[in-house]
Design a protein around this nucleic acid. Structure first.
Length: 844
RNA sequence: GCCCCUAUAGCCCAAUGGCAGAGGCAGACGACUUAAAAUCGUCACAGUGUGGGUUCGAGUCCCACUAGGGGCACCA
């Protein structure tokens, strides 16, 4: 089915209903209401955040910006419904809320679509943006439409290039040649973060390795801070995200130990987390694909060299999928060279193997087979000795084949003998340091961020390569380096950037010597674009600066960030990294970009993610046509806790629509005039209203939107009862409750709520009306029901004054007949009194 | 292998260590109606995955297990 703009399907069920059912103004016609209010809101602009002289306190609420890959889908509908609840809540509380939107519009899907259809990626991208924008407006997203950015606009990516140069000048952007992740299908390199289980995150092709010179951002230099500062987010970010980031950064503490190599001047350093087992090292392993392995093999005879080359070839052939298989047998090659264990002089044979990674630690390890399973597997495969140095009381690993890794006592370890594991680690560090053979150290799983991409639709890297002067940054006043037109360029993946084909664009004069030079033809990873966009919203059209410093002081950091957990690692880590760099460069005065984070779940259908292959896609436009925008939005909020996935098969947008009609009708039944004195109204309903006012805010602030909606339903039920009962539609409390419902509902169902507001006699703009605070005096109870338990089981309850004393309550409880019956012959051991609500009698 | 989350009614989900049910879906019944839809109202259904423990009192805290989900993983 062709995507349509939301709600505009011409012959839909909804429109049919509109034509036949909308007989009079006492019928709730959601589609007529939608059409009525949208243009009025366009004029009213209730969510403008940049008005001069606005004295309201500021709050920055940000939804993760979308990729323009077609019209909005169910996932967007959930994300923006939930983000809107938060944003509208703070507006209603009297805050000047900045809630902007933009598009993360560079990237592969546009380029692939363009190749497939023979179009310019630009046209495809901007058409989709126009469609999404129209849909967002109709979906009644509370965005500030004066703050919009599109990352593929030169006015945006010019500052992306500025950011790159800031990093470059600070030494945080550099080029190096190494084996990089390569997607043979996308024909581009991938960041470590974009390789999932050995597969390309985007197309699921098996990722291979390729030696290339590429640009990197030095994120490892910030690894400690990125890890440690997660503690400051505790409680305000989902624990899950914090733990994912911690796992990803992966800091290990241990020691670097220097091993002298026979026939080599320089010692080889290894990293180990178990320096306590140093006396148990029986061989050394270097990464087969490392420079060190090549060097150590270089001196061997030609036969050995050939054999090593063959092994290395085999290693390079294998991809990550094979490499990651856990039951894979160990392979290796003896280099016929020897290292000397610095603590006992033992001569250790050096092996090359692919189970040691070239780019972690120093690309070489000391192997302690008795206490490391991988080393033991290797030792058993190649018949190498196993030396136990930590007595754990378990079977000898050489016999059992199981390395012992638990606690124990050091043996066969000279000065460490008799120590515990922890004490030995401490002691050996001192010994190594004193003798200059090593030191305590740490290592990270995190690697530097590879940002080069061999694709067209991205930000050009602002570097010029000159044969004489080398690598030169494009001068600031020459920015932006605009993308050349795609016309005439071959965008098909071929391993080098399509920009290389734009000869006129590539060839420039060197900014230093004036000679012939070439532009760098790679583009930046689009994660660079999204790593700082939250700052750009402060001045999205400025040509003076990336963002204004003063406004950043006022608005940043983002108070509330809302988005999917899919970005728990990549985007959030990069944004945190860039923020820290900008802080260190003196551009901003904070170090964490997002104070509070909400990760909404996914929308599923019949238990699994919606996908074409499963054939379980629910079209948002059809849902909106069927049930109306408000009902879909309400369903998203009411389905359950926002972090949980929503199975669309389990929820009921029809039920939500029914409730909205029920709520809407109450406004119709109010016959008093605006401004009536609520104090004269029905006490019971007033109490319900003010109980609601007390409970609602904290629920929303704690993201318990589903419970908040339930509370509105409760209030509507009480209101209905009052209207149909003694109080009647003219009662002042009925108006108070109906106004409260209209205002609270505006967070979830803006159209219905605005229409109720009009029915109640107010000017448009319920979103700006303040909800009001609970009148505590209405909530004071004079009597409560006291509960009496015997041994924790309920035995009696009766009404008592809230002022009852413990003694009075105890006496009354013990006098209860059913309590006496429950106690029977048993002896009373203890009586717990929690006046005025509870008594528990414990018997022996 | 390491780390983490979740488990309440047929279903989605509530419940500051204190009466297991707030709300909804699906269901039954009643009122209104010539009838149906819509609407309004009433009702039923679980003892909280399993086994221990702490406590006067546990859905809630602790331990173990089972099931489901997630992150990291030949990272030394």
């Amino acid at each position: 089915m062709e995507p349509t703009t939301l709600g505009f399907r011409p012959h839909s069920l909804g429109n049919l209903r509109r034509m036949t059912d909308a007989i009079n103004e006492n019928e709730y016609d959601v589609f007529a209401i939608q059409d009525k209010w949208l243009p009025i809101w366009d004029d009213l602009r209730p969510f403008a955040s940049g008005n001069a002289g606005d004295t309201r306190p500021k709050k920055y609420v940000l939804d993760m910006f979308p990729y323009p890959s077609g019209d909005l889908h169910m996932g967007h509908a959930e994300a923006y419904a939930l983000g809107d609840v938060i944003s509208r809540y703070w507006v209603q509380k009297g805050f000047n809320v900045m809630h902007p939107i933009g598009w993360d519009s560079f990237g592969l899907p546009a380029e692939n679509a363009a190749i497939k259809r023979g179009l310019d990626p630009k046209g495809w991208t901007y058409d989709n943006i126009a469609q999404q924008r129209a849909s967002m407006r109709r979906y009644a997203c509370s965005f500030d439409w004066d703050r919009v950015l599109i990352t593929s606009d030169p006015i945006y990516y010019r500052w992306n290039q500025w950011l790159f140069l800031e990093f470059y000048n600070k030494g945080l952007a550099y080029r190096k040649n190494s084996n990089v992740n390569w997607c043979p299908s996308c024909q581009t390199v991938l960041a470590n973060e974009q390789v999932v289980q050995g597969l390309c995150e985007r197309c699921d092709s098996v990722v291979t390795k390729k030696a290339l010179t590429q640009w990197y951002f030095k994120v490892t230099e910030y690894a400690d801070r990125l890890l440690d500062d997660l503690d400051t987010l505790e409680g305000n970010w989902p624990g899950k995200v914090l733990s994912m980031q911690r796992n990803w950064i992966g800091r290990s503490h241990g020691a670097d130990v220097d091993f002298v190599i026979e026939g080599r001047t320089e010692p080889v350093t290894v990293f180990t987390t178990r320096p306590d087992t140093l006396f148990g090292a029986t061989f050394m392993v270097v990464a087969a694909d490392s420079a060190l392995a090549a060097e150590l093999a270089a001196d061997a005879d030609s036969e050995t060299q050939a054999a090593f080359a063959a092994y290395l070839d085999q290693v390079k052939q294998s991809n990550d999928i094979e490499r990651l298989a856990t039951d894979r047998p160990k392979s290796g090659f003896s280099l016929n060279r020897f290292a000397v264990n610095p603590v006992n002089g033992a001569k250790l044979p050096i092996w090359a193997s692919d189970y040691v990674l070239a780019d972690y630690g120093h690309g070489a390890i000391m192997a302690v087979p008795a206490h490391d399973q991988r080393d033991l597997d290797f030792a058993r495969a190649f018949d190498l000795p196993v030396q136990v140095v930590l007595e754990t009381g378990e079977e000898d690993p050489a016999v059992s084949g199981v390395a012992t890794t638990g606690e124990g006592t050091l043996i066969n370890s000279g000065p460490l003998n008799g120590l515990s594991k922890a004490d030995a680690i401490k002691k050996i560090a001192e010994v190594l340091e004193a003798d200059g053979m090593g030191k305590s150290s740490k290592n990270f799983r995190l690697r530097d961020w590879l940002i080069s991409r061999q694709r067209y639709w991205g930000t050009p890297i602002p570097i010029i390569h000159c044969a004489n002067c080398g690598e030169l940054p494009v001068p600031l006043d020459a920015l932006p380096v605009e993308l050349p037109s795609a016309e005439g360029l071959d965008l098909k993946p071929k391993g080098t950037s399509p920009l290389g084909g734009a000869t006129d664009w590539v060839n420039v004069t060197c900014p230093k010597c004036g000679g012939a030079a070439q532009r760098d033809t790679d583009t930046m990873d689009t994660f660079v674009d999204s790593s700082w966009y939250f700052l750009r919203f402060l001045s999205p059209t400025s040509t003076e600066h990336a963002f204004p410093k003063e406004a950043a002081k006022e608005w940043m950091p983002v108070d509330q960030y809302v988005g999917g957990v899919t970005h728990a690692i990549l985007h959030l880590l990069y944004a945190r990294f860039v923020t820290k760099v900008l802080h260190d460069l003196g551009h901003i005065d904070f170090e964490e970009p997002f104070t509070r984070l909400l990760n909404q779940g996914m929308v599923l259908m019949n238990g699994s993610a919606m996908s074409k292959s499963r054939g379980n896609i629910v079209a948002l436009s059809e849902q909106l046509d069927e049930h109306g925008i408000d009902a879909v939005r309400l369903t998203m909020s009411f389905a359950g806790p926002p972090e949980d996935d929503i199975d669309w098969a389990d929820v009921s947008p029809a039920g939500a629509a029914k409730f909205l009609a029920r709520a809407w009708r109450t406004a119709n039944d109010v016959t008093s005039a605006p401004g009536v004195d609520f104090a004269t109204g029905n006490k019971e309903l007033r109490k319900a209203t003010h109980t609601f006012l007390r409970d609602f805010g904290p629920l929303i602030e704690n993201f318990k939107f589903n419970v908040g909606v339930a509370k509105i339903m409760e209030l509507v039920n009480a209101l209905r009862k009052a209207i149909d009962g003694e109080a009647g539609g003219a009662d002042a409390a009925v108006r108070e409750a109906a106004e409260t419902v209209a205002k609270a509902l505006s967070l979830f169902a803006p159209y219905t709520s605005e229409d109720m507001w009009a029915k109640l006699g107010f000017e448009p703009g319920v979103a700006l009306a303040q909800l009001g605070v609970a009148d505590e005096s209405l909530l004071v109870e004079s009597n409560v029901v006291a509960v009496v338990q015997v041994d924790g089981k309920l035995r009696d309850k009766f009404e008592v004054s809230v002022a009852i004393t413990e003694d009075e309550l105890r006496t009354q409880a013990l006098a209860s007949e059913s309590v006496i019956r429950a106690i029977g012959d048993k002896q009373i051991a203890n009586v717990i009194v929690r006046a005025p609500k509870l008594v528990n009698i414990a018997t022996k």
